[in-house]
Amino acid sequence: MKKIVFAVLFVTSVMAAQDMKVVKGDFGFLKDQKEVNIVFDYSKMTLLKEKYPEKEYVANRTKELNEKMKSSGDVWKKKWDTSKEQIWNPKFLELMNVVYSKDNKDVNFQEGLAAAKYTLIVDAIWVYPGWDAGIMKQAAKVTTQLKFVETKNKANVLLEISSENAPGDQWGSNFSNESRIGEGFAKTAKSLAKMLLKKAY
C-alpha cells in the first residue's frame, strides 16, 4: 500500500514539472543593478483546465460552496480576494530575495521602487489550484510571463521569460487552494532568481 501511495505522489509531482525558458532578450542589462521594481498583473489570469476568467471562476466556486454549506462560499471569496496581496505577492518577493541573500548578493527585488531603472512585470496567465484529499493530492500549477521592462518606458521589453506549470505544494497536508497557489508563485520566484543568478549576476 505504501508503495502505491508513493507512486501516486511521485506521478503527481512529475506531472507538475516547471518549464522556464527565455522568449526574447538577454540578461546583460541587469548586471550592475542593485534594485529592481516589481509589478504584479492578474488582469489576464485564467483558472482550471477550462481556462475560466477569474471573475467567472470566483462566482462559480462561491456558488458551489454556498450550496454545500450556507455562507461557506462567501467566506471563501473573502479569503480569495485577499490572497494576492497577503499570500501570492509576498511569497514571490520573499523567495526572490532569499536566493540572493543566501548567495551574498546585494540585489533587491521589491514593489514600489519607482526610482529603479528596470521593472519586472509578473503577468499571471493561468492557475490550477490543485487539491488535497489527505493521502492523495495534486499540487497547484502556476503559469506566468515574466517581463523586464524600463520603468519609465514599460513598452520597451528587454527580457521576457515564460514560466509554465510551476508546482505549488507543501510537505504534509495543505487544504488551502490559496496557499498552494502561493507556493506556485514561490517556486516561480525561486527558479527565476536562480536563472538570473547564473546568467546576470
Score class of each variant (00 low, 15 high):
Lys3Gln: 14
Ile4Gly: 07
Val5Asp: 13
Val8Cys: 08
Ser13Ala: 14
Ser13Val: 13
Val14Ser: 00
Val14Trp: 09
Ala16Leu: 12
Ala17Leu: 13
Gly25Leu: 00
Asp26Glu: 15
Phe27Ile: 08
Phe29Gln: 11
Glu35Cys: 14
Val36Ala: 10
Val36Asp: 11
Ser43Met: 10
Lys44Leu: 15
Met45Pro: 10
Leu48Tyr: 07
Lys51Cys: 05
Tyr52Lys: 13
Lys55Pro: 07
Tyr57Pro: 12
Tyr57Asp: 10
Ala59Glu: 15
Arg61Asn: 12
Glu64Asn: 15
Lys68Arg: 12
Lys68Thr: 10
Lys68Gly: 05
Val75Asn: 09
Val75Met: 08
Lys77Tyr: 08
Trp80Pro: 01
Trp80Arg: 04
Asp81Arg: 05
Asp81Pro: 06
Ser83Ala: 14
Pro90Ser: 02
Lys91Trp: 02
Lys91His: 07
Leu95Pro: 01
Met96Asn: 02
Val98Tyr: 02
Lys102Arg: 07
Lys105Phe: 00
Lys105Leu: 00
Asp106Phe: 05
Phe109Ile: 00
Gln110Trp: 00
Gln110Ser: 13
Gly112Ser: 11
Gly112Trp: 15
Leu113Trp: 05
Ala114Cys: 08
Ala116Arg: 11
Trp126Arg: 05
Val127Asp: 03
Val127Thr: 07
Ala133His: 04
Ala133Val: 08
Gly134Cys: 02
Met136Lys: 08
Lys137Glu: 04
Val142Thr: 05
Val142Ser: 01
Thr143Lys: 01
Thr144Val: 14
Ala155Trp: 00
Val157Gly: 13
Leu159Thr: 04
Ile161Ser: 04
Ser162Leu: 14
Pro167Gln: 03
Pro167Asn: 02
Gly172Cys: 04
Phe175Pro: 03
Ser176Glu: 02
Ser179Thr: 11
Arg180Ile: 06
Ile181Tyr: 00
Gly182Lys: 01
Phe185Gly: 06
Lys187Asn: 08
Thr188Met: 02
Ala189Leu: 06
Lys190Met: 08
Ala193Lys: 14
Lys194Cys: 07
Leu196Glu: 03
Tyr201Met: 08
Tyr201Glu: 12
